[in-house]
Computed example of a mutant assay.
Amino acid sequence: MNMKFMQIAMKYLPEGKKMLDEKGIELNMEDLQPMLELFMNVMAEAYELGKQDATK
């Protein structure tokens, strides 16, 4: 599942990077890594909530 989450993150990464660039915030991939890890944690928790809800 983590691989699917990473694919989703990479799909939207250019859009997010563009938003940051427009605000004058420069980040490289090394800077974005902690945010990607946070995204993965959020997605995993959301997945588990959905899974629990589906089994009820």
Rank of each mutant, 00 (worst) to 15 (best):
M1Y: 11
M1E: 10
N2M: 13
K4Q: 07
K4C: 05
F5N: 03
F5L: 04
M6E: 06
M6A: 09
M6K: 05
Q7D: 14
Q7E: 15
Q7G: 04
I8Y: 04
I8T: 06
A9G: 07
A9L: 07
A9E: 00
M10G: 03
M10H: 08
K11M: 12
Y12P: 02
Y12E: 12
Y12D: 11
L13M: 09
L13K: 01
L13T: 01
P14I: 01
E15H: 03
E15L: 14
E15N: 07
G16N: 05
K17T: 03
K17G: 00
K17L: 12
K17V: 08
K18L: 12
L20Q: 05
D21M: 11
E22C: 09
E22Y: 08
E22A: 13
K23V: 04
I25H: 08
I25Y: 13
I25W: 08
N28M: 06
E30W: 00
E30I: 10
E30R: 09
E30N: 11
D31W: 00
D31N: 09
L32P: 05
L32N: 04
Q33M: 15
Q33A: 15
P34K: 02
L36R: 02
E37G: 14
E37L: 15
F39G: 00
F39H: 03
M40H: 05
M40K: 08
N41Y: 03
N41D: 05
N41I: 02
V42Y: 10
V42E: 10
M43W: 07
M43G: 08
M43V: 12
A44N: 05
A44Q: 08
A44W: 01
E45M: 14
E45G: 02
E45L: 11
A46G: 00
Y47W: 13
E48D: 12
E48Y: 02
L49Y: 05
L49D: 05
L49P: 00
G50A: 07
K51G: 06
K51Q: 14
K51Y: 14
Q52W: 11
D53Q: 12
D53I: 14
A54W: 10
A54T: 11
T55C: 05
K56V: 13
K56F: 03
K56R: 13
